[in-house]
Nucleic acid binder design. Structure first.
Lengths: 338, 338
DNA sequence: GCATTCCGTGAGAGCGCTCTCACTGCCTCG
DNA sequence: CGAGGCAGTGAGAGCGCTCTCACGGAATGC
């Protein structure tokens, strides 16, 4: 329970000697109030340290003043990946400026999904930021069709999707990473890819291929091995690659987790980094600078992307013109593995 | 905006042919309703896919159905540390079972602190879980004194604090880590400590000292160097230790981030791990298994601790007897650095 | 067999806020 | 100098829910 009896608009108005309506007008910041009345209300509110009752307000405005950040993946991914906490941080910061609360929702089961939809339709939140939805998951479109303001992180695989999204420039970032390896003198560059049923996975591989081609190197299927975005996956993929391409001297890992696995496998094989093999990751996760040796990687501005998601959602909620997708630029961070 | 016009209790009641009061009784799950009426209401609610309006409900119950997870540190720490996301995950899971929402709040400035207090007193949330508060921060006690249900992670430095908390067994974990090093044959074991103005830092050092003593090893100040819980700090501390104690053959780092720095410094100095020097970290952060070589560490059950925090808070909110602090057991995870 | 209890139910009063509407003065204009 | 307009204000009606209270009817007691 909060303190005994919180001050109400009524008591503020009484203290200021005006009606509830006028007090409300002042606090809503709207026009049409005499300077005298305004000042009196403001003072009274301060003296009582008045806080508007959000429940009463939402009841009439039908706005909750909060939005949901929805994590769709199994919770485990939320653990290891630095992506979510960072998006969350950015979104939270942006929303705080507008005094909008961020409610965290995790959707694992079908039942939870259904409940969330009812929850959102019931007006408990004004909109939702969907993070880590699978590329083909119909949930975002479904919610949007139900009239719930929705934005998502990452580009959906479905080209017909109308849900606004924020994505990093995955193709460009992968090209930069690959070019860097080539410029450093690598002749036999391979890649450990993410899952191919995810847009990120596809795009980062596409960037790798494009850049090889642009630099007149031949791409062939044996140069790519899928690593499913985990450390263990990165290690296993590297072992496979080493067996197929013993003279490889450059590895582009589609994320830092896998790059960590690459480093482990390389160390186990006795291959010096960066002396014998150069490695570049993607994401600039915290573990990139913690790796041994510290990992060269492609930074994506995740916090800023989180802010952008929040900004977009707020725009959708305010009924502004449908937001265009945003593709955030990436940047190479050179450390010791290249 | 949610869908055009959400069904209300009124419409459910009408459809079921009962009064609003009876419909309310059924949905509240309370007794005193005839089976016939109950079934009719339930069916009507399902058909209309009725969702109670939370705002209207809180207006009268003075319960918001949500609690805050408050992060007090500067946001940057939220980035690198795996601790927060995991606590959050655990708390979220626990709260979801009770259909309580988790609102994320970040407190950086004094203004934000003050606003949050008013926010909580205004009944916007029913309670708060405070994470990563500084050991001497008066905020938790202050909120508790204001009548706001509060629990916190980590033991407060102030012995007079009455705020319930959940903490890992830091002393015990540090003893286990140290013992492990000794059992593996290390003769000259040193430690990289956390900040000494934090309880965690103090406790993990205390455990290190206790275990040395228990095993009849001498502790002296030169065996400990502060590393402030960052990778760079861990690296710098290791360099200092190497200069002072060139024959060191075991390092206990008070967290995994610093352990990563230890590994980097050791690699730079050409000291093989675990051949020449053995290393143990603390936390079992994701980066522990991603390190090269994979890091032996002390696991604390962070997700479970998050759950416990949520459970405690709910108990406090329900006015149950003041919860006793919980100290969670730790566990050694052997990987390749020892 | 009548008074008493109790169960199931409905009516109605708010919770604190926003917002529409009407009203009062005062200013402007013809 | 009267009609119209407009700024500033207050009264009052809900928003959808919970909860108290009162009431009819069935079950129980003596």
């Amino acid at each position: 329970m909060p303190s005994a009896s919180a001050p109400t608009l009524e008591s503020v108005a009484a203290r200021a000697g005006v009606s509830r309506a006028t007090a409300g007008r002042v606090l809503a910041g709207s026009a049409r109030v005499s300077p005298g009345a305004r000042e009196a209300v403001l003072r009274a509110a301060a003296e009582l340290s008045y806080v508007p009752n959000q429940a009463a307000r939402s009841l009439v405005t039908r706005r909750s003043g909060s939005v949901a950040l929805v994590v769709v993946e199994p919770v485990e991914r939320f653990f290891n990946d630095s992506y979510f906490p960072l998006v969350l941080t950015g979104a939270q910061a942006q929303l705080a400026e507008r005094e909008v609360q961020l409610v965290l929702v995790v959707l694992s089961t079908a039942r939870e999904r259904e409940r969330f939809e009812r929850y959102a339709r019931g007006g408990h939140v004004d909109g939702a930021i969907l993070v880590s939805v699978h590329g083909r998951d119909p949930l975002p479109q479904h919610l949007a069709d139900a009239g719930i303001p929705v934005v998502m992180s990452g580009q959906p695989l479905d080209p017909a999707s109308t849900v606004p999204y924020v994505s990093a420039d995955n193709v460009g970032g992968a090209r930069t990473a690959t070019r860097h390896l080539l410029e450093r003198g690598c002749r036999r560059v391979v890649t450990v890819t993410g899952p191919m049923d995810m847009r990120v996975g596809q795009d980062r591989l596409a960037g790798f291929r494009e850049e090889l081609r642009a630099q007149r190197h031949r791409f062939s299927a044996e140069l790519a091995e899928s690593g499913d975005f985990t450390v263990a996956g990165g290690r296993a993929a590297t072992e496979a690659l080493l067996a197929r391409v013993p003279d490889l001297d450059g590895v582009f890992a589609a994320n830092d987790l896998m790059a960590a696995g690459v480093l482990q496998a390389l160390a186990a094989a006795g291959l010096a980094v960066p002396g014998r093999v150069r490695v570049v990751g993607f994401d600039d996760a915290p573990m990139a600078s913690a790796a041994t040796p510290p990992l060269t990687t492609v930074r994506q501005p995740v916090v800023e992307m989180g802010r952008e998601l929040a900004r977009m959602l707020l725009a959708v909620i305010d009924g502004e013109a449908p937001a265009a997708p945003v593709v955030a630029p990436t940047e190479l961070v050179e450390r010791a593995t290249s």
